[in-house]
């Protein structure tokens, strides 16, 4: 009997064991999912940092970023000084129906104006509403988590090391 029908009994055993264990289903709408750190949910814009250098719009493979800005002059603060010109953003749209969440815009931005946020529940009924404008992108900034802590035993980043070295020198 153990040679014949062994597979049959094994099948029954496996299914019964599964029956008695807790199921692995995540009860999503009632329980929020446990997202890993640095999860890519939505891109947030820190408007103050943006100089409309257009790097993100140029590098985006999907051409989903639309930027429009104009120059304003800031009068000179000192006597005989030069007037400064500053870029002011008029439009910064990200079209999430095109975005492929590749992170290139965030990696390429020299001024840290773009950040990842783990928020994912922004589905819309109309595809037009999937284009987030500047204000909405600023709102996402409040959901951007703090940078993840370094692994124990890791070396501190070069920027931090250079900053600390400069601080020591100036003392």
């Amino acid at each position: 009997m153990s040679m014949f029908g062994k597979g049959l009994l094994q099948g029954l055993k496996v299914t019964f064991k599964n029956l008695t264990r807790r199921s692995v289903t995540a009860h999503y709408p009632d329980v929020q999912p446990d997202l890993p750190p640095r999860s890519r949910g939505v891109i947030a814009l820190q408007e103050e940092n943006c100089t409309s250098c257009m790097l993100c719009a140029r590098e985006c493979p999907s051409w989903c970023i639309t930027i429009d800005s104009h120059k304003e002059t800031i009068p000179a603060t000192t006597e005989g000084g030069r007037d400064r010109s500053q870029n002011v953003l008029d439009t910064f749209d990200i079209d999430y129906s095109l975005c492929m969440y590749c992170s290139i815009c965030i990696e390429v931005c020299p001024f840290d104006a773009l950040h990842w946020s783990p928020e994912f529940a922004y589905a819309e009924g109309d595809i037009v509403d999937l284009t987030h404008d500047m204000n909405r992108l600023r709102e996402w900034m409040w959901t951007v988590p703090a940078p993840q802590a370094l692994d124990p035993g890791a070396e501190p980043s070069k920027e931090l090391a250079a900053y600390e070295a400069a601080a020591e020198e100036s003392e």
């Binding site: 299914t15 599964n18 029956l19 264990r21 199921s23 692995v24 289903t25 009860h27």
Partner: peptide
């Protein structure tokens, strides 16, 4: 329910 739990899921909830 029984089939669901045997397949590590929960069935209709």
């Amino acid at each position: 329910k029984a089939m669901a739990h045997m397949q590590s899921r929960v069935g209709p909830m």
